[in-house]
């Protein structure tokens, strides 16, 4: 419009560049790039330090179950059992947590009275604030003893399902206990993601459903859940990533053994993260390097899961 004013209306950073501006912009840009550098550095240093043990490994790293790495020569170790335990524990946790988290999110957004909803959301966030080592302590000190009779009952009445075959652990320190604790720990993140997306459901969709005479549940089923699906799936995958990498709760609760076993109620299985935390203080010879190799596998798995989750969430919000 005002072409005559053009010289005056020009954006500020024309002509002479101020030194302060250049330096500050450089600092900001540098910080952003530093983050990319750190992420690349994590991958690079893990690979560099894992390489010696991987090169010396006499067994197949991906298919071996044994962990015989604390030696000066000819180590033989693999992540098969560990990776299996990791995925199993995280998958059970996800199965337990996702429906509950969706329920909580629905409760906070559509069921709870407006005034208390914020406070209730807080309480769920507090679950995320409790340190994992405290969850571990709670798991062995309180939950595991409480679950022993439950497990005994499950082997008695559900023992015909292979997953629950007995005899049940007498200490309660099984992979199912660890999964229950993991489920509690990932509840807040799945809830948060679901809550955000449920809030964004267009009011028109909801009111259209209600105007047609739908009950509250029918409104949720017809308008809210289809709209919120990508957010829930993304949140669940973020929760999965967290459960895969969770260390302390599992390390403290499980009484470990390196086996591939589907018996949820017996001691057995181990996860990568917990294995690293337990083995590291005693690692000698190729031990540390081998643990770093295991960490590299964990890093790769969680990276893939997280990238997938972010992709799904981003695509979902673009469609909306």
């Amino acid at each position: 419009m005002t072409t005559t004013d053009a010289p005056q209306a020009a954006p500020p950073p024309t002509g002479r560049r101020r030194i302060g501006d250049t330096v500050f912009a450089g600092l900001a840009r540098g910080s952003g790039l530093l983050i990319l550098l750190i992420l690349a550095g994590v991958a690079a240093f893990l690979i560099i330090q894992a390489w010696p043990s991987l090169a010396a490994n006499t067994a197949n790293f991906l298919t071996t179950q044994e962990w015989d790495a604390n030696v000066r020569e000819n180590p033989a170790f693999g992540v098969a059992a560990l990776a299996f335990g990791t995925v199993l524990a995280a998958a059970i946790a996800l199965l337990l947590a996702t429906p509950v988290a969706v329920g909580i999110a629905l409760f906070i957004v559509y069921y709870a009275p407006r005034r208390v909803a914020a406070v209730l959301g807080y309480l769920v966030d507090l679950l995320a604030a409790i340190p994992s080592v405290v969850y571990g302590l709670w798991g062995i000190g309180f939950l595991a003893p409480q679950l022993v009779p439950v497990f005994r009952g499950m082997t008695e009445y559900l023992g015909w399902i292979p997953l629950f075959s007995g005899p049940a652990s007498t200490s309660g320190r099984t992979i199912l206990t660890a999964s229950v604790v993991l489920a509690v720990m990932i509840l807040p993140i799945i809830t948060a993601m679901s809550r955000d997306v449920f809030r964004q459901v267009p009011q028109g969709h909801r009111e259209a459903a209600l105007a047609m005479g739908a009950t509250r549940w029918e409104m949720i089923r017809l308008a809210v859940l289809p709209f919120g699906r990508s957010g829930v799936v993304g949140g669940a995958m973020l929760g999965l990533g967290r459960a895969l990498g969770e260390t302390m709760a599992v390390a403290m609760i499980l009484s470990p053994s390196l086996a591939i076993s589907f018996d949820l109620l017996r001691s057995g299985n181990q996860t990568i993260a917990a294995h690293i935390a337990l083995q590291y203080p005693e690692a000698t010879g190729y031990g540390v390097s081998a643990l770093i190799a295991a960490g590299l596998v964990l890093f790769a798995i969680t990276l893939a899961v997280n990238m997938g989750a972010r992709y799904i969430v981003a695509r979902g919000s673009k469609e909306a």
Binding site: G41, G245, L298
Partner: peptide
């Protein structure tokens, strides 16, 4: 990548510094 970085397992962050 900041989003991805929030998902780094804490034990991997520890191993990174060990390696460094």
């Amino acid at each position: 990548f900041v989003d991805v970085m929030t998902g780094i397992p804490s034990i991997v962050a520890g191993l990174f510094v060990v390696a460094l």
